[in-house]
Computed example of a mutant assay.
Amino acid sequence: MTAKEQAFPSVWARPQRQRREQPSLSREQIVAESIALLDEEGLDALSMRKLGTRLNAGATSMYSHVSSKDELIELTVDEIYREIEIPPLTTPDDWRAAAWTSAHSLRTAVLRHPWIASVLGEVSGASLGPNMLRMSEGLLTLFEEGGFDPDGANTALGTLFAYVLGQTTSEAAWLTKLARSGQSEEEWMARMLPAAEAAVRPFPRLRGQFEARMDAASQQIRGSDFDLGLDVVLDGLAALRARAV
């Protein structure tokens, strides 16, 4: 069997090794320290060697839990999904408020760990992670108990997830760029203002949008844009739900 045939496509597909004695380092410790490193220094700083130094651990104890950096990233991404709150429903009509809360919880988690925007498309086994499965099951439960049929609940889950990640990964990438620049959002926008004003001048509709938003804080704009788009998504899901009622 070749090395390629022996490799597992995901950390969740690889059988756990059986250990005869209690290891000095746990997978939970490795994942927690990985997230701390990523939050502090970003994706480029993550390496097995650097992580081992932070944990004061040798390669053998590290690789007994995680065989590669790709597996480590899968584990860290799934751990972020543990942070997502999905509130239970009191009545079926609570589905919209619960979906709103869940969407904002996912957005907050991504923006708390903006490096995740760079890796979501590369995590092949993300859907098999226990926290991802818990979140998906929770959202399906929310929508089914809220009056969606099973197919509609699956569509609602995918639509909500796609909207939040589509909007929020762009925000996270922007915040990562800002952090690398060493500037605040206000400082960056102030430097870009003259060029932006000149660029939109020939385009009356874009100029109107630009002028209407010029006095608002960038963070406020991003938040209000997210909420408006989320309302549109939930309006569409409400129409989907009505077909099953």
Rank of each mutant, 00 (worst) to 15 (best):
G208K: 08
P15F: 08
R17E: 09
R207D: 11
A172N: 09
A36M: 10
R27I: 10
Q6C: 07
A156F: 09
I116D: 01
I84D: 00
V77L: 11
A179N: 10
E171V: 06
R191P: 01
S64L: 11
E144V: 08
M135Y: 10
S10Q: 05
T108R: 15
N154D: 15
Q183M: 12
V31P: 15
W95P: 00
I86C: 01
T168Q: 07
V164L: 02
L89M: 06
F148Q: 02
A162I: 08
L142I: 06
E40C: 13
Q18G: 11
T101S: 12
D39P: 11
S67L: 06
S105K: 07
S224Y: 04
P23F: 08
H65M: 04
A199C: 08
R241A: 01
M135F: 12
L89C: 05
D151P: 00
G236P: 06
L237P: 06
A7Y: 01
R243K: 13
M189Y: 12
F210P: 05
G146V: 07
L206Q: 14
F8R: 02
W188F: 15
Y63V: 00
E186N: 06
M62Q: 01
A195Q: 14
F161V: 07
F226S: 02
E33A: 15
S136D: 13
A162N: 09
T2S: 15
H113M: 05
S34K: 06
I30L: 07
Q6G: 04
E137L: 11
F148P: 02
L175A: 10
S118V: 01
A196Q: 15
M189N: 15
S127C: 06
P92G: 08
G208R: 11
G125M: 08
L38K: 07
I35K: 00
T141I: 02
A156W: 05
G125S: 09
S218C: 03
S105N: 12
V11G: 02
M132P: 04
L228C: 13
P202H: 07
D93Y: 02
A198W: 05
A244K: 03
K50M: 14
V77I: 10
A59G: 03
V11M: 07
P9R: 05
S170P: 05
L25T: 02
R54Q: 12
G166R: 11
G166H: 06
S68V: 08
R191M: 13
A153T: 08
Y163K: 02
V66Y: 00
L38W: 09
D70R: 09
L178D: 01
P150H: 13
P114Y: 11
S127N: 14
S184W: 05
S124Y: 13
D94E: 12
